[in-house]
Amino acid sequence: MSILNDRDRAAVRKEFEKLAGPVKLVVFSQELVAADLCRQNEQLVREVAELGETITVEVLNPAIDRERAEGYGVDQVPAIVVEGARDYGIRFYGIPSGYEFSNLIDAIIVASTGESALSEDTKASLRALTADVEIKVFSTPT
């Protein structure tokens, strides 16, 4: 059974008209840790990827693909890394549903174009950063 309904698919397809370059969604799954959640997450990502021609999916198991998981800095499952021309550092821990689903779609588009929708002032301030910034955003499905 599909997770996305026809209306969701149509809406996402419309959004994906903005896609430019390729995007890779790297999914981290580990059945022994969270079987159902990992399966649902993987299915959701595959359903989303089908809607955009430039989107590919790779599934990794952090217990097996340990070095890759460490390279991505991913230490939880289920997780998704959204990669564009480079790894921009965008991660999702847990199934992106509800509001986070819109954010996943937005992340795919922004990773694809490589162009943020921030103001010029904000971009200039971010370019001037001399230290690393790690932002965690907690949300719930509703």
């Binding site: 847990g94 921030l118 690393d132 790690e134 907690f138 949300s139 719930t140």
Partner: peptide, 22 residues
């Protein structure tokens, strides 16, 4: 905003965390 900041600067990483799953 966090993910747009990640794209705008290679200094910024952003992680969305589903609180009920973690």
């Amino acid at each position: 905003l966090a993910q747009h900041m990640s794209v705008a600067s290679d200094r910024v990483r952003s992680t969305a965390i589903e609180a009920t799953e973690f």
